[in-house]
């Protein structure tokens, strides 16, 4: 598989064509929603703030 030069553009402006392809669904519906909440009691890094220092390359886990 070849590496993408640019990330896929998932901005709101870029999805108009996709909406048209799915236009058979006319009902306005929110089907599911989740909120991600940061839990400071369970840090992602043993050091506690890896993102600020080594970016998680060395500390972490």
């Amino acid at each position: 598989m070849e590496k993408l030069k640019s990330p896929p553009d998932y901005s709101l402006q870029k999805v108009q064509n996709s909406i048209k392809k799915k236009k058979n669904n006319y009902e306005s519906k929110i089907l599911y929603a989740v909120k991600l909440e940061v839990d400071p009691t369970n840090p992602s890094c043993v050091k506690g703030d890896c993102c600020k220092d080594c970016g998680g390359h060395h500390y972490g886990g």
Binding site: L12, N25, K29, I30, L31, V38
Partner: peptide, 20 residues
């Protein structure tokens, strides 16, 4: 459908095309 991701709000929604 579509999945909406608002990273700064930490919210993920699954919505019908009409919502979009």
């Amino acid at each position: 459908n579509f999945i909406l991701y608002a990273p700064l709000l930490r919210i993920i929604l699954k919505v019908s095309p009409s919502v979009l």
